[in-house]
């Protein structure tokens, strides 16, 4: 059995008094797209710093394709590509000059480097801007050039730290298309940190980080499945009181998810009618839908991620604004 692309075991990390990661264990199989979901400050960036060999964990081990990041960082760096939150490009240099510089860092040279640069520029639709200074490019183009930079040496694992931050929906779509093509064409393993639900939704597997702990880990559908099929979601001023009333009167199973009450009766539409009859004045709005990843997140992390609002009232589950 091949080594997993990422194998993190019992990693704890402390900055002074502050604990950024608590006993995190996580595996990413080769060739997969894994999404690390969590609000700012949940430990995503710390985990990335450890994986990209920029600092050793306080405790525990992190392995990339079987190689320990602390024991042999140079081997890990060779296997690794990293796309940081901000593009790692020199604005004064042209696109091509930036990529050539990157090539020198990875022992690429001559015609092979030239061909690889041309190939990536074509793949990410930036060939016509190759000789423009990077500072003249739009945010979306710069992101794609930065992705090309991270991929120049054909890394087996690509780490992406909130790479679509600040991109408009069109730029985000084309960035995602580029990622998909990459996964299919080169079998690259992708580990992406994000706080966007619709992005997590597209991953093969999702891990939820909350206050430094990995609180959930599974495929998006499996994680949502744990919350049941179509259920009833109620918004209320006092969700706790409403839940207590419903449980007392109807005896159905309920759950408090953030500021919402999830009710799982056998026949939701019929139940909704009797519910309104009994507690109509306490209910602001009610929705019947399948669980979303945001619900999953709320259940496990207890708080809301910084997700775009306004889609949760759609009936029948996840709508995907930006696909």
């Amino acid at each position: 059995m091949a080594d997993p692309a990422v194998d993190i075991q019992g990693v704890t990390h402390q900055y002074g008094e502050h604990t950024a990661l608590r006993d995190v264990s996580l595996r990413v199989e080769a060739g997969r797209l894994y999404g690390l979901l969590g609000p700012n400050g949940s430990g995503k960036t710390t985990l990335f710093r450890i994986l990209s060999t920029l600092m050793p964990p306080t405790d525990g081990t992190a392995r990339v394709f079987g190689t320990d990041t602390t024991l042999d960082p140079v081997a890990v760096r060779q296997a690794l590509g990293v796309v940081f939150q901000e593009a790692a490009l020199d604005g004064a240099l042209t696109v091509r000059e930036n990529l050539r510089f990157q090539g020198a860092l990875y022992r690429l040279r001559g015609a092979a480097l030239q061909d690889r640069i041309d190939e990536l520029l074509a793949r990410f639709d930036v060939a016509d801007r190759a000789d423009d200074p990077v500072e003249e490019l739009s945010g979306g183009l710069r992101r794609r050039v930065d992705l090309a930079r991270g991929l120049l040496h054909r890394p087996r694992l690509l780490l992406l730290d909130e790479p679509t931050t600040g991109l408009d929906p069109a730029a985000r779509r084309s960035f995602w298309r580029a990622l998909r093509r990459l996964q299919e064409a080169e079998g690259t393993t992708l580990l992406m940190a994000t706080h966007l639900m619709d992005e997590a939704e597209r991953c093969d597997r999702v891990g939820i980080l909350s206050e430094g702990a990995l609180v959930a880990d599974g495929s998006p559908s499996a994680l949502k499945g744990e919350l049941g099929e179509e259920t009833l979601w109620l918004d209320a001023d006092e969700p706790r009181a409403l839940r207590d009333r419903i449980e007392a009167q109807f005896g159905v199973s309920t759950r408090l998810v953030g500021a919402r009450v999830q009710v799982a009766p056998p026949d939701p539409p019929a139940f909704l009618a009797s519910l309104y009859e009994a507690f109509g004045e306490y209910i602001q709005s009610a929705t019947i839908r399948t669980p979303t990843l945001e619900d999953v997140f709320m259940v496990h992390a207890g708080t809301s991620p910084e997700a775009p609002r306004g889609r949760v009232l759609a009936r029948g589950g996840q709508t995907d604004e930006s696909s």
């Binding site: 060999t53 920029l54 690794l80 940081f84 901000e86 860092l105 991270g150």
Partner: peptide, 12 residues
């Protein structure tokens, strides 16, 4: 924020 981080994660 960026450029030198790319150098730091390269095998050099």
């Amino acid at each position: 924020s960026g450029f030198l981080q790319a150098v730091m994660v390269a095998p050099t």
